[in-house]
Amino acid sequence: MNIDTAGLGTLGVILAMALVTLATRWGGVFVMSFVPISYRVKQFINAMSGSVLVAILAPMALNGDNGARLALLTTAITMLVVKKPLPAIAAGVLAAAMFRQL
């Protein structure tokens, strides 16, 4: 279905996007309200919460340029050493910026 973006069409499309996004923000909470929080469920959720991040990051590392990879590597090492997120992020971004100036 094609929507004309002249006139109110654009607003309609944006509202539809907003509703779909809202459904994703609310949907997980809504579904969980029917699931009893057992120990197994907690274990699943706990394992899943780190996995969300890893699953976002993996393709970023694989498909990124070497600047992107260096940034991630620098962040990981800095975080292991310093254990503070902000210096780790700053070091990673700086590494990408410097690498890309070369």
């Binding site: 279905m1 094609n2 929507i3 499309v13 779909v20 969980m32 929080i37």
Partner: peptide, 26 residues
Amino acid sequence: QVPLFTLLITVFAINARHLLMGATLY
């Protein structure tokens, strides 16, 4: 012209991680 169905599927797929976030915070 915007292909509405394709667009909404794309938006849903990219934002589906919110479903997991809501669940993990539950």
